[in-house]
Design a protein around this nucleic acid. Structure first.
Lengths: 180, 180
DNA sequence: CATTACATGTAAGGAGTTACATGATTAG
DNA sequence: CTAATCATGTAACTCCTTACATGTAATG
């Protein structure tokens, strides 16, 4: 295994409730789950093919207009089994959190380094923007669906917001401290 | 580019002060920078070869005992240039933070789902352990070296600790809430 | 009528992990 | 004398991104 491949699990999870096309799955990564995972559509279609070979999903043909065929994918009992096994499995260690900005800071030795201020400001703006975006998402998402019935989603959006709050606070505190 | 390759920059950064062998660089990933980045030694040796071809590092032979040769790598002006260019560059967007646990939660719909409690507990233990480890690192690292002279490192260790504090707080709050 | 959205793929190439491979040196 | 550490690589595999490729349908 090159990298821990979680994409098949995500696809199975997204297909548990309703059958979907590859395009619809791709759309989910731009809205719904896109906050927490990213992937290219090329990878989705490859993985759908593989899952079909494994008989963890099955497909039926549909039409968009009269000419374009589209393929609906549906989860099979085998796929459900795999997904549920993953869903209840425990981790025994945490992955390293790779963050380019954090990495870059590691190499800045001197507190008085002039670049520090600008780099932090740049990062601060990015995270402030993300925080605003997440707050908006929180309102949007849970005006449409029920919190109690989508509790995991609620929890992680809540976490993402708190994480960004901590991140921006850390950055602004750091800005203050380097000027002391 | 398949993935944003930051390893060459890390290697250049680690070689700025002193020349090192591949093995010593590998060791750095187990201690120093290992908190913030992970990599396999096979990848290190490949990247050292590539950096040598690019003339961003140069190498000299040394000996371990009388038989085993070891190779010391040293940064060149070209390598320094590349590193400094990266060091002062700004990001214009944030990478998605991929966290398997967060992903898993996304798919848990019902607040009363029995797995929720166990999964959170498992994750809580892992993060509590990590937090304890980071606090220890903070003490260890800055008893040896000066904070003001290794400010970036101080900042990110500080951030990592706060991140874990937020993470564990989120998890324990969530545990409380699902039992309400 | 032009742009955006819908829809599905293949190809190329680099990144990352795991396993394989070898051998000297030091510490207990 | 045995295990851990020092030391450096290659090979296989697969993940992931970017680019290429094609064509219909809806919207303004």
């Amino acid at each position: 295994m090159a990298q821990k491949n979680l994409l098949p699990l995500i696809l199975l999870g997204l297909l548990r409730d309703t059958k979907k096309t590859g395009y619809e799955l791709k759309k989910d990564f731009e809205t719904e789950i896109g906050e927490f995972w990213s992937v290219q559509h090329s990878q989705i279609y490859l993985e759908l093919k593989r899952l079909t070979e494994l008989k963890e999903i099955s497909s039926t043909k549909g039409f968009f207009g009269s000419k374009i065929e589209k393929t609906y994918y549906e989860i099979t009992p085998l796929g459900e089994e795999r997904f549920e096994k993953w869903e209840k499995s425990f981790q025994n260690e945490l992955a390293v959190n790779k963050d380019e900005f954090v990495l870059k800071l590691y190499f800045i030795k001197d507190k008085k380094d002039g670049r520090l201020q600008q780099l932090i400001k740049n990062q601060y703006d990015l995270h402030l923007e993300k925080l605003a975006h997440l707050n908006l998402r929180m309102k949007e998402v849970f005006s449409k669906i029920d919190k109690e019935q989508n509790y995991g989603h609620y929890l992680i959006l809540n976490h993402a917001i708190k994480r960004e709050e901590e991140y921006t606070k850390w950055l602004s505190d750091s800005l203050e401290n380097i000027n002391k």
